[in-house]
Simulated assay, not measured.
Amino acid sequence: MSDYTLYSYFRSSCTARVRIALYLKGVTCDDIPINLLKNEHASSKHKELNPSGTVPLLVNNSSGFKIGQSVAALEYLEETHPEHSLLPKDAQARATIRQLVNIIACDIQPVTNLRIMRQVRSLGGVAENWNLALTTDGLQAYEAVAQGCAGKYSFADEVSLADCVLVPAVWNAQRFGVDMSKFPVIQGIMKNMEELDAVKRARYMVQSDTPEDLKQSK
C-alpha cells in the first residue's frame, strides 16, 4: 500500500506543489483525480473529506489523517519525512523560505485560481488578463526577495519548499502569457528545477487525468 493518497486535479498548482515534495522525499502516493471543471470538488462526497471543497487533499493511508491545504501538507511532509529536508535549520533561512512560499501561496494563487477566474468572467472581465497582471506583480516580489538569497535554487543551492511552490506558479504564468524574461533569477531557478525527476513527474501534462489531447501536445 502506498504511504498516501492524493486527491488531485492535473492542472492544480496547489496539487503540483505537494506532488513535487512527495517525489523529492521518495514518498509513495496514489492519485484520485477530482475534476474541477466538472465541479467534482464541490460535491457533498468530496466536502465530507475536505470541507474546503478544494484540491489537493492529502490522506495518510496508515492513520487516515487528512490535510486539505497544500502549504499545511508541505509542512506536515517536512516534519514527518525529514529525509531530503526542504527546510534548513537556521531560523532566518526558514523564515525567508516561508516568505517566498507565501508570496505564491497567499499573494498569487488565491486571486488567480479557477473560482476567481469564473467570478471575473461573470462580472464581464477577461480572466486571463486579470491573471497575467496579478501573477506578474507577485513574481516581481518573489524575484526581488530571491535576488538576495538564491543560488541554484530559491534559497542557496538546496531545493526547498519555496521551489516546490514556485515551479507550478511559473507553469501557470507561462500559460497566461507572463513575460518571464523580466525575471532572470526565477528563470535560473526554473532551469535547475526542471532538470529534477521529481519535477518532470509532477508536470501537468503527464498526470493520470491529463486529457489525451494535452498529453499529445506536451
Rank of each mutant, 00 (worst) to 15 (best):
Q187I: 09
C164S: 05
W130Q: 10
K47N: 03
R98S: 14
L114N: 11
A133Q: 14
E83Y: 13
P82W: 12
A127V: 05
K47S: 00
L132H: 13
A127K: 03
I116C: 14
G151H: 00
K38H: 05
P168Y: 05
A16W: 09
D137P: 11
L49T: 07
I189K: 04
S154D: 09
V18I: 04
L134D: 10
D107A: 07
K89N: 14
K182W: 05
W130M: 11
F155D: 08
K66C: 13
D197Y: 01
N172V: 08
S63Y: 11
P51Y: 04
I186R: 02
I32A: 02
S8A: 12
Q99W: 11
K38D: 09
A144K: 15
S208P: 11
S2E: 11
R11F: 00
K152D: 10
L100S: 05
D157W: 01
L86Y: 06
D90W: 15
T96A: 05
W130T: 05
A144N: 15
E48V: 07
I189W: 04
P184V: 12
V126K: 11
K215S: 03
D213Q: 05
N61G: 01
L196F: 01
S85N: 10
K218Q: 05
C149D: 09
K182A: 08
M205D: 08
V59E: 06
E195R: 06
S43Y: 01
G148V: 06
T135V: 15
L6I: 03
T15V: 12
A95N: 14
I116L: 12
A93F: 10
P168Q: 03
G151R: 07
A144P: 13
S2L: 10
D3E: 12
V178G: 00
T28Y: 06
P33D: 03
I186H: 00
K38A: 12
P184H: 05
M1F: 13
F10Y: 06
L22Y: 07
H41N: 12
E143L: 06
V101T: 13
I34C: 01
A202Y: 02
L87T: 12
E143A: 06
E83S: 15
L166E: 03
L100P: 15
L100W: 10
V206P: 08
C164P: 02
Q92E: 13
R118K: 14
D209A: 00
P110R: 00
M180Q: 05
K152F: 03
N131K: 15
D163H: 06
M193G: 00
N129H: 13
A42T: 10
N35V: 06
I67H: 04
M1T: 15
W171C: 10
E128G: 05
E79K: 07
P88Q: 09
D30Q: 09
K38M: 08
L123T: 07
K38T: 07
K66S: 13
E40N: 04
A162K: 02
I103Y: 11
N129R: 11
E75G: 04
M205G: 07
D209M: 00
L132G: 08
A72E: 08
A127E: 09
G124I: 03
T5S: 04
A72V: 11
Q109M: 14
E40W: 02
